[in-house]
Computed example of a mutant assay.
Amino acid sequence: MSLDSLHDLYVDELKDLYNAENQLLKALPKLAKSATAPELKAAFTEHLEVTRKQVERLEQIFTALETSPKGKKCKAMEGLIEEGKDVLEEDGEPAVIDAALIACAQRVEHYEMAGYGCVRTFAKLLGYEDAEALLQETLDEEGEADKKLTELAETVINLEANDAEGEEEGDEDDDEGGDEPEVPPKRGKTSPKAGSKK
């Protein structure tokens, strides 16, 4: 496809998102099945239903454009899903695997938020008000999903993963005072300054 106008770019990016969402529809059931925490299983299952609605919205937009949504493969989503598959093949503590699954899922959410933010802005500039509203709705849902995953990580999953690690270390270090909290190392002057790469 030749990108000669913002409209061309808009359609190209929409096709990329359409393919990304369809890849995700296949991946989410596997993530839900592999998660051990009931709350995480529920979050993945819920997002599967949300993703189906997001695909329908994209199809609405393509119908209005009188264009097929097919014809592009989202390589970024393919890579993100591959990383998730790698986690599913790992052995380890269930809580730690759950924490890794959340990390993978949040990478996906952030990628989608970036993509939907761009096409929403393109729709606005091109005067596609209905599409802009639909894309904003999806963007809001992706942001909400990301917040839910963060809350789940911070209140349940990461804590359990940390406890699992602590139990293993405690068993090994019983004779060495392993119960004492570890003091994080101080940052030296060699650490990069925030905002130094602009």
Rank of each mutant, 00 (worst) to 15 (best):
D8S: 10
E13R: 10
N19F: 07
A20H: 01
K26D: 13
P29H: 02
P29N: 07
L31T: 00
T36M: 05
A37S: 08
L40M: 05
A42V: 03
A43T: 10
T45C: 00
E46F: 10
H47R: 06
H47W: 01
R52M: 06
R52T: 04
R52Y: 02
R57T: 06
R57A: 14
L58T: 04
L58C: 06
E59H: 05
A64F: 01
G71T: 08
K72H: 05
K73Q: 10
M77Y: 02
G79F: 08
L88Y: 08
E89K: 15
D91W: 01
E93V: 11
I97E: 01
A99K: 02
L101N: 04
A103R: 01
R107V: 00
H110T: 13
Y111R: 06
E112H: 07
Y116K: 05
Y116G: 08
C118T: 15
F122M: 14
K124H: 13
L126M: 09
E129Q: 13
D130C: 02
D130S: 13
L135T: 09
L135M: 11
E137M: 10
T138M: 09
L139V: 10
L139P: 06
E141K: 15
G143R: 09
A145C: 13
D146N: 12
K147A: 15
L149F: 15
T150W: 02
E151S: 12
V156D: 04
D163E: 13
E165D: 03
G166H: 03
E167P: 00
D173E: 14
D174G: 02
D175I: 00
G177L: 08
G177M: 03
D179V: 12
E180H: 11
K189G: 12
S191T: 04
S191M: 08
